[in-house]
Computed example of a mutant assay.
Amino acid sequence: MTTYAALLRGINVGGSRKLPMAELRTLLSGLGHTGVRTHLQSGQAVFATERGDEESLGAELSRAVEERFGFPVDVIVRDHTYLKAVADNCPFPAAGLEARQLHVTYFSAPVTEDRFAAIDQAAHLPEEFRLGDRCLYLYAPDGVGRSKLAEALSRPSSTRGVIATSRNWNTVVKLVELTAPEA
């Protein structure tokens, strides 16, 4: 049995694409998954299953959400090992930062530096980003809401053809905890 986190992109934001977490839990249970839990209202669910892989599980949940709620939702599914590696490999001093200052964008596929070549990193200092394994770490000292670098990174040309969804550091750490094997 493997425990996964499902990261749903762009739900319950700004009053649109409402997806109540209780209904998401029911939907995941109805798909045959066990140990279903949600975290916050912004689209994180944890579940266990013996079948499928990250890509097929994400596609299955995406289809089920569209059928049930009537709107498409991109979903990235990742297991505990991956989520822990993302947290462990953070290139910024996470322990010394506020959660609002550090974000991780998860990608559905690998991305390379050339995708972001048009972004002049020096022009955005002290904000910085670094790429990881199917993720991007963003350090924004004044928070992501005021970040010009976050705005530049979110332009469609940066992520064309790849699903991308971001989480603050508290959520990154919590997903590692929620997907951890029970001792």
Rank of each mutant, 00 (worst) to 15 (best):
S56W: 00
H80T: 08
G132R: 00
R17K: 15
E55H: 14
L24H: 05
P110Y: 06
C135Y: 05
T179P: 01
V73L: 06
D120Q: 01
V36Y: 06
Q121G: 15
R17S: 13
I163R: 13
V173A: 13
L97N: 00
N170C: 07
R155K: 14
E127F: 12
V75H: 06
E50S: 12
L102G: 02
L178V: 05
L7R: 07
E113A: 14
V77L: 07
E50W: 00
T159I: 12
R167Y: 07
N168V: 09
V65F: 03
A152E: 15
S154Y: 08
R160S: 13
E177D: 11
F69E: 02
P91N: 05
D88F: 10
N89C: 10
V13N: 06
P156V: 15
Q121H: 13
T112A: 15
A140I: 02
T3K: 12
K148A: 15
H80K: 03
A64H: 00
T179Y: 06
L175G: 11
L125N: 11
P93I: 02
K148T: 05
R68C: 00
G70R: 11
L97D: 09
P93G: 03
V104Q: 08
L175H: 11
L27S: 01
S42H: 02
C135A: 03
E98W: 12
P181S: 08
A123C: 09
A87D: 10
K18V: 14
G145L: 07
D114T: 13
V176S: 01
L31E: 04
R78H: 09
S62G: 06
T3A: 03
E23V: 01
G15L: 07
T179G: 05
G52H: 03
E23Y: 02
A122G: 04
K148L: 14
A6C: 02
P156R: 15
A45G: 01
V162M: 09
T112F: 09
A150S: 12
R167K: 10
T105N: 00
L131D: 09
T105R: 10
K148N: 11
R146K: 14
A152I: 06
L27G: 04
V176I: 08
R160T: 10
S42M: 00
G15H: 02
G132C: 09
S157A: 14
V65P: 08
F107Y: 15
L131V: 09
E23N: 01
V73K: 08
S42G: 02
Q44L: 13
A122H: 03
V77F: 08
A140P: 04
G132W: 08
H39K: 08
H39S: 07
T34G: 05
N170Q: 14
V172M: 04
A45V: 02
E66F: 02
L27V: 07
Q41F: 00
F47I: 04
D114Y: 05
N168L: 06
D120R: 08
P141S: 00
A45Q: 07
H39L: 14
G143D: 01
G132E: 00
E67S: 04
R78A: 12
A95N: 13
G132M: 03
Q41S: 02
Q101A: 11
V36F: 10
G32D: 04
V73G: 03
D53T: 12
R130Q: 15
E113F: 11
G145I: 14
R25M: 03
V173S: 10
P93W: 01
V77A: 11
T49L: 04
H80Q: 08
A22Q: 06
N12A: 02
C135S: 10
A94M: 04
E98T: 12
L40G: 04
S166I: 01
